[in-house]
Design a protein around this nucleic acid. Sequence first.
DNA 1: CATGAATGAGGGTTCATTCAT
DNA 2: TATGAATGAACCCTCATTCAT
Lengths: 206, 206, 206, 206
Amino acid sequence: MARSPSSKRERRSIREESRAVYRQAIREAAMRVFGRTGYREAKITDIASEAGVATGTLYNYFSSKEDIFNSIREESRNILRASLEKSECIRDPVERMCERTRLMLGFLEDHGALFSIHMQTSSLHDMHKDDEDAAFRREILEMFIGDIDQAGERMRQDYPSLILATAVGGLIQSTILTWVEAGCPAGLRENTQTIMDLFLHGAAKR
Amino acid sequence: MARSPSSKRERRSIREESRAVYRQAIREAAMRVFGRTGYREAKITDIASEAGVATGTLYNYFSSKEDIFNSIREESRNILRASLEKSECIRDPVERMCERTRLMLGFLEDHGALFSIHMQTSSLHDMHKDDEDAAFRREILEMFIGDIDQAGERMRQDYPSLILATAVGGLIQSTILTWVEAGCPAGLRENTQTIMDLFLHGAAKR
Amino acid sequence: MARSPSSKRERRSIREESRAVYRQAIREAAMRVFGRTGYREAKITDIASEAGVATGTLYNYFSSKEDIFNSIREESRNILRASLEKSECIRDPVERMCERTRLMLGFLEDHGALFSIHMQTSSLHDMHKDDEDAAFRREILEMFIGDIDQAGERMRQDYPSLILATAVGGLIQSTILTWVEAGCPAGLRENTQTIMDLFLHGAAKR
Amino acid sequence: MARSPSSKRERRSIREESRAVYRQAIREAAMRVFGRTGYREAKITDIASEAGVATGTLYNYFSSKEDIFNSIREESRNILRASLEKSECIRDPVERMCERTRLMLGFLEDHGALFSIHMQTSSLHDMHKDDEDAAFRREILEMFIGDIDQAGERMRQDYPSLILATAVGGLIQSTILTWVEAGCPAGLRENTQTIMDLFLHGAAKR
DNA sequence: CATGAATGAGGGTTCATTCAT
DNA sequence: TATGAATGAACCCTCATTCAT
């Protein structure tokens, strides 16, 4: 009897894929629920029914409510990190910052709900519990610091680059908040030029 | 027994004052507890014992845990609003912005815990529930918009003043966050000059 | 105004007594429920309603279901231990053993349900988790060993006293089991003479 | 294709044998798991993986977790019963009791885990649910009663034989418990002589 | 028949709120 | 009015059982 040559391997692969699909579906459902109500108010049963599964099923894929939450954040960090890597081949440091800003805004535009997930742990009392997210914020800050250092003479030397990097971060942050308050309309990434322009040249008439 | 003619009125007044003192003491205790652990994790019993009263007593002054929380935020908005009014007599709009920034940073430095209280509701899912706070953020934004409009020619005209106001808000925000991550060391208001300098002239060498 | 002289002290005392009364009532309710259904099958809500309180109330007096269980066992050990102390003034070691046996049987007759509570942890897998109960069994065994040692020449010397003590323990145990299987009729302690007689002289005709 | 004339019958037989093999393997796995953790703590998945099958498979052979448990106990009763039958050809009733004791201790030494299985239901609340096991205990007791009755004049006549049988049962029981507490070392059956000696002649010096 | 993921009722525990003192 | 113990609804998680493959 002829057998599909790699049936066993395929089986495993299918199973693994099914697992990944489930995990992803649960993450996405949880993302919606966390986004709507916040971590603490979100009930496991809500996540389950949003995902269309029984509560018990969640625990076949995640060990706890917190695990789901962390998994979402980890995944979104990974996506953004991977996206930001695309900018590393850009030579000009200012253009690189610009592209990074665009990638970050684009990421949010494409994965809107993720932002609110991350914001939830920014509540200050959690900051210390959430080393991973804080480390990632630092990671991004360091990227900007590196860009600014490489820009050398083109940047003001009267402030440490940490200060300047923090400033660009603040401009991005407030752009995002405004966008969210406006209901996340299309076009977030088009603010890139404005951000960089204001960051570089300020608001005063020259 | 002879009674002072206005005893009834005075009595009421004393009673009311006593109520106010209690309410304030509870708010302050709650502020510390919310600041330490966040709204959801904070337990009513913790607040009560921090305030040195019984749990039942809290309910003689506030109708619920959420009521305490909202009361704190309202009070802190009122304090900051009153503080910002001090800047209104400044004629020069740019100096006025500068002073407002300083007042905001000073407010936080003096009432550190309040910031974390406000941040807790900045989680986006609460935005809709918390119209009051959103309105207050808008109120501050409008102040900056007004300042920028009055600055007229001294500001760039190629962006709407909303954009510029948002930018200064972002610079302030990121300064605050950095300060908080550093553990709220003294000296936050000394960042005012840097913020305004970067806001006005940008990060690029001229 | 005359005051009851020790009102404050009495208040505290009343409160403490009330706590003790509650704890005891809960323990007794739990004892009945554990006795009926066993530890694992017993539901917290059953214990609460048997005690006539809400589930939450249990947790004002005990930290967990297991805590209730252990508290019952500890209390019953203490009662039996206190009871056994009454036998210590008896000079004759054999009479002392006899009295101890009677006290143990009497204890069970008076606190019937406790026996099944203790038996539940005798399930072997729990033996190691339950050092306190095992230690107490050992404590009782040591008492008998001491008695036998003191009996000196009156006892057989061809077995270590541990063996003999174990034997008397077995006779007591099986008497108890038979009694329980018979539905705990009155008169358990009247088996004392039989137990001691068989222990001392055996079943063979002489 | 030629078929052996009785293929159908043999086939069924093979199938039945296969079923029996499966049931036995599951029972043995369950015995190990129950022995380790007790009935309530034992998880079906643990039993399944100990047996090397999927959880669903268990339900093709047993209708429930409890069914597995009862099946184990029934089987162990049958084994012990069959073993005890070997003693029935012994003429001398005292020697028969002795042999029976040895067989019981030997059974435990050889099937140690089974003992803990039985102990688990000795918790009194289960007694009523477990008529089978209680009946078996009675069965063994009756055997001893019969032996004692047959011993006639050689036994004391001042106690009913039920009392004496209970006594020997208690001595056996406590020997077993001591052995278990010691970690089930080899040599349990060597206590037979001691048990019978103490049972017959008591602990007092003669 | 074997599989093992899905199921969901049910458990222990928490804690905002109430209320008798 | 202050007290703080009692309350019980609601939550997260477990796991025996089922069933589609």
